[in-house]
Computed example of a mutant assay.
Amino acid sequence: MRTRSQHQRRKRIVQAAAALASRGGVEAMQMRTVAERAGVALGTLYRYFPSKMDLVVAVVGEEIDLLESSIERRPPAAETPAGRAVDVLMRATRGLMREPELADALIRSLIMADVETPFGDRLARLLLRVAVGDRHADTESERPERSALTGALAGVWVHELLEMLRGRRTYEQIQQRMEIVASRLLFDF
């Protein structure tokens, strides 16, 4: 169990790492630089995050936390499960594209990660909750195909986001493509 000061220290470290990544990608997230910017000793940083990838995963976790908070404050209003899922994905797209270098660094790092990253699973669970509605989310263990479908939808979105970061897709194109894919994958939700 972390104390309040430990929690604040961890948060400062993650914020420092995100700020560095937003200006220069993951390469800018040198552990020593992160420690200096966060105002902690290098050994302290390594106690919280044994590797740079652990730190990247924490930054991604913070981004998902922000998305989940946004969904709680303002739930998607679309009538269909697919529409609600697309709303979540496009909010995530807008949030990430506010800091395109950070988005690029995080997505590329997650794709190449040698460590377990909760990003895909968390996003798929969020999509599932939103698509079926919170009131039905507890019964979804009986329908594992729905988890697989929302996981596939999250995977398509990651690919589309990478295409946007490469300059091959616009926001509008991603939205249109996600609407098509979501309507096909989630048609019997």
Rank of each mutant, 00 (worst) to 15 (best):
L123N: 06
M97P: 03
E116L: 15
V130S: 03
L67E: 00
P50Q: 07
D114G: 12
R73I: 00
V59S: 01
V57N: 15
E140S: 11
A105R: 02
R143M: 10
D138A: 12
M178S: 09
G133H: 06
D87Y: 03
V60D: 14
R122P: 05
T93A: 15
A124K: 02
G167K: 00
F187G: 00
L102G: 01
G133Q: 11
R177N: 12
H159D: 12
I64C: 00
V57M: 12
R135I: 04
M97W: 00
H136I: 04
L55H: 01
V181G: 05
I180A: 02
P144K: 04
L110V: 14
R73L: 12
L149C: 04
V156M: 06
R122T: 09
R146V: 05
L55D: 02
L67Y: 00
D114V: 08
R74A: 11
R184S: 13
L89H: 07
T80A: 09
E68F: 06
I174Y: 05
M97Y: 06
A92N: 10
E163V: 01
V59K: 03
R166T: 04
G167S: 01
P76Q: 13
L162S: 08
V115P: 04
R94T: 15
I64S: 00
E140T: 15
R135N: 01
R168E: 14
L153R: 03
R91L: 11
T150R: 04
T117M: 15
L185H: 01
V181Q: 06
D121T: 13
R177Y: 08
Q176E: 15
M97E: 07
L123H: 02
A152D: 06
V60G: 11
R125A: 14
E63S: 04
A124S: 15
T139K: 08
R169Y: 13
H136Y: 10
L165M: 03
V115K: 14
E79H: 01
L55A: 00
E99C: 06
L126S: 02
A82V: 09
V57Q: 13
R177K: 13
E142V: 04
S183F: 02
R94Q: 15
Y171S: 00
H136A: 14
A105I: 03
M112G: 02
L96H: 07
G151W: 07
D114W: 06
A105V: 05
P75E: 07
K52N: 10
D104V: 01
M164P: 05
L186R: 04
E101C: 08
S183I: 02
Y171K: 00
